[in-house]
C-alpha cells in the first residue's frame, strides 16, 4: 500500500489539475451517503413501488399471483361497505382528534405559560401519557368505557346517572370513545409544542403591543396567535399522519367494532392481508393510505421548501 501510495503522489504534479476532479476528497461525501441512499431506495421507495405493483394484481392466497387485473382491486375496494365506513370513520376521527388535541394542548400551554408555581409539575403530568404505548392506553380506556364498569359506574355512584352512555358498546358513540383515548394521549404532546412556541416569543413583542395601546386580548389575538401558525401546522401534520395510520389503539379498544363503527383503513389493511390472505386488496388499501398521508404532507413540504428559499 505504501509504495502504490507514493507512486500516485509522484504522478500528481504532472496532471494535477485534471486529476483533482476525481480526487478522494470529492468522492468521500458520496461514498458516505451511498449506503443510506441505497437502503432507502430499496427498502422504502422500492417497496412502495412493489406495493403499488401488487395492488394491480389479483394475488389471493399464500403464493404470489401476479396476474394483472388493472384497477379492479381499487374499484372493488371502494365498493365495499366496510371500506366506505373506514373512510368516513378516518375523516371523522382525524377532525375530532386534531381539534381536541390542538384546543386542549394550546389551552394547557397558555395556562402553563403564566409562570405560576407548580407549572413544571403539571407540565410533566400532561406530557406523561405520551410515554405510554397506544396498546396500554387503549386497554385501560376500554375498561373505563365499558358500559357496566368504569366511568358509567362512577357517574351512577355520584348520582349523575343521566350522563351514562353506552360508549364502546354502541355504534353511535364508539368512535367518540376512541377519540377520547387518543386525545388523552396526544394532547400533552401538542401542549409541549405550543409551550415551546410561547416561550420562544420574546417579551419585547408583548411589551411593544402594550406600549402601542393594545389590550391583553388584542395582544393575544394579533401578536401571539399569528406567531403560533407554524407550530399549529406542524402539530396538524404530525398528529394528522398518526391519526390516518391509527391501528394499535383500534386493536386494543374495539377491534373495529361494533359493526364497522370504529374500523380504520390501517386495521382493515392488516385484516385483509394477513387474515383473509387478500394480498392484492391489502396492497390497494396501503396505496390509498399513502395517498391520504401524501395529501397532508406534500403541501406542507412545498410550503416549507418555499420558506427556505425565501430565507
Amino acid at each position: 500500500m505504501a509504495t502504490s501510495g507514493t507512486a500516485a503522489r509522484e504522478r500528481l504534479p504532472s496532471g494535477g489539475r485534471s486529476l483533482r476532479h476525481f480526487s478522494w476528497d470529492s468522492l468521500t461525501p458520496f461514498l458516505l451517503i451511498a449506503p443510506s441512499v441505497i437502503l432507502i431506495a430499496v427498502f422504502v421507495y422500492g417497496f412502495i413501488g412493489y406495493t403499488a405493483y401488487v395492488s394491480t394484481t389479483k394475488w389471493y392466497g399464500i403464493n404470489p399471483d401476479y396476474t394483472s387485473v388493472g384497477l379492479q382491486q381499487y374499484t372493488d375496494l371502494f365498493g365495499l361497505p366496510r371500506f366506505q365506513a373506514d373512510l368516513t370513520n378516518t375523516v371523522e376521527f382525524t377532525i375530532l382528534f386534531l381539534f381536541g388535541c390542538i384546543v386542549l394542548g394550546f389551552g394547557a400551554a397558555i395556562l402553563l405559560d403564566q409562570k405560576l408555581r407548580g407549572t413544571i409539575f403539571f407540565q410533566n403530568v400532561f406530557l406523561f401519557p405520551l410515554a405510554i404505548s397506544f396498546i396500554v392506553t387503549g386497554t385501560v380506556w376500554r375498561w373505563m368505557l365499558n358500559p357496566n364498569t368504569g366511568i358509567n359506574m362512577l357517574f351512577e355512584q355520584a348520582h349523575l346517572g343521566f350522563l351514562k352512555s353506552p360508549w364502546l358498546a354502541d355504534t353511535h358513540t364508539a368512535l367518540y370513545g376512541v377519540v377520547i383515548a387518543a386525545t388523552w394521549q396526544m394532547s400533552g404532546f401538542c401542549m409541549a409544542m405550543f409551550l415551546a412556541g410561547l416561550r420562544g416569543i420574546p417579551d419585547e413583542l408583548r411589551e411593544a403591543a402594550r406600549v402601542d395601546g393594545a389590550s391583553e386580548l388584542q395582544g393575544f389575538l394579533r401578536v401571539i396567535l399569528p406567531l403560533m401558525r407554524p407550530i399549529t401546522l406542524s402539530a396538524v401534520i404530525i398528529l394528522g399522519h398518526i391519526s390516518l395510520k391509527i391501528f394499535d389503539l383500534i386493536v386494543a379498544m374495539t377491534n373495529g367494532g361494533p359493526g364497522y363503527a370504529t374500523d380504520m383503513p390501517g386495521f382493515y389493511m392488516f385484516t385483509a392481508t394477513f387474515r383473509q390472505n387478500l394480498y392484492g386488496r391489502g396492497a390497494a388499501i396501503a396505496m390509498v393510505l399513502l395517498f391520504l398521508v401524501a395529501l397532508l404532507i406534500v403541501p406542507y413540504l412545498v410550503w416549507s421548501m418555499r420558506q427556505e428559499v425565501e430565507r
Partner: peptide, 11 residues
C-alpha cells in the same frame, strides 16, 4: 339478541 346483554360488543 332480545335476551342478550347490552354490552356484548365490548366483551
Amino acid at each position: 339478541l332480545n335476551y342478550v346483554n347490552a354490552d356484548h360488543a365490548t366483551i
